[in-house]
Every structure is written in C-alpha cells, then in structure tokens.
Write a protein that binds this DNA or RNA. Structure first.
Lengths: 96, 96
DNA sequence: TCTAAATTTGACACAAATTGACAAATCTTT
DNA sequence: AAAGATTTGTCAATTTGTGTCAAATTTAGA
C-alpha cells in the first residue's frame, strides 16, 4: 500500500542521491522524505510532480501510483473494497 | 459523486419516513441527515450499517455505495483518476 | 574499530478537514 | 396564515495531514 514511496526510493537509490538532497530540492525536512519513502507519510500532489521532474519520469507514472495509494488507503481493508472500487470505476466512466 | 445520499433519500421517500425520524434513529441532528442525503456530509461506516438495517437493505449494498463515494471523492477530478483506480484494483487483487 | 555522515524515530506544533449541534431561514402542506 | 419539514449558516470539538526538531540508530570509510 505504498507503491509511490517504494518507487521513489528505488529511483533515488538507482541514481545514488541522498535523502538530504531530495529534501533540499523539495524544501522539506530530511526526516519527512524518509517517512514518505517508507510510506509513513504522503507527498502532496505538487510534490509528486516536482519529484517526477527531479527523477526524469513522467508525472503520469508517479501520480498514478500516488492516486492508487490514496485510494487503497481510503478503502483500507474494508471487506467490500473491491465492490466499492468497481462501482467507483463504473461511475467514473460515465463522467468521462 | 453522492450515490449513497441519493440512495438513502430514495429509500426514505419510498417509505414515507421523515428526516426527523431517521435522525432520531441515528441519534444525530435532523440538519445533519439532511446534509448527508444531499451529499454535503458523509455517514460514518457504523451509521451506514445502521441505516441499512433501518431500511431493510443489505450492508453490502450501502457500503459499496459509501466506499465508491469515498473513492471518487479522494481521486476527485484528477486527470489520472482512471489510471489510479486501475492500479489500485490490480494491487487490491493481489492482496486477496 | 572509530567516527562521521545518513537515515530513522518520536515528540511536538500548526493548519485543514471532519463531525456534530444549534438557530434561523426557507419550503410545503393544510 | 400556521405548523411542520427541510435546508442553510455558523460555531465548537475532534481528527487528520503536513511539517519541524532533537535524539537514536544504522551505514560506510579511514
């Protein structure tokens, strides 16, 4: 339930960048980015976009993970999570 | 984006019950259930279950709508909403 | 190993969102 | 017009989200 954190940690490590550096770029405390990568906290939408640029990946890729994490977090482990998700998808389709 | 509110309003009206009565049953203010039916506020999970019993429908039916509303609310009108939903679904499947 | 840098943890602060009550305004029915 | 039903607006209490800071722990290099 923390796809984005894992992803940006992988990106950071693959480029040999320090938490300190990402934190500076995002203008937040190092402790915070540490928590974010481990899924203890979440990025804001704007921060996700900044990070995507920083690591040279598309906004879409990271935002999709970010949204997915948010969704899974709100339906948590509700027994009807899948039904709710399907209903949401059906409704969303009609809105597009 | 307020499937549940519409549903419970329809249920209430089909049975000719007053907001006042539902509110009394749920032990909340009448104004609140009014707002809930119009999507201005949300029920808690426990209240959804109480309402389901009150109107003699299944928990599953109302909780599905409740979850769907929550999901659609959190992904709001993000341009990548559908991608996020699909990713969430994929991940959720692996967790079951 | 020793130590310095990097990361993690826990406590706290502040802001924003949520949940509810209450009073007043509006809508409906008779 | 009067009574009841519903809606609206505002305020308080609580919860949740976003961030900092200091201290503890882990990791790496000399």
């Amino acid at each position: 339930m923390n796809s984005l954190g894992e992803k940006i940690r992988a990106l950071r490590e693959s480029k040999g960048i320090l938490l300190r550096q990402v934190a500076a770029f995002l203008e937040i405390d190092t402790a915070l980015i540490s928590k974010i990568e481990r899924g203890e906290r979440r990025l804001t939408r704007k921060q996700v976009i900044k990070v995507a640029n920083y690591y040279n990946v598309t906004d879409e890729e990271l935002l999709t993970l970010w949204l997915s994490d948010k969704v899974l977090n709100t339906i948590d482990s509700d027994p009807y999570a899948m039904q709710g998700l399907n209903k949401a998808k059906t409704i969303l389709k009609t809105l597009l």
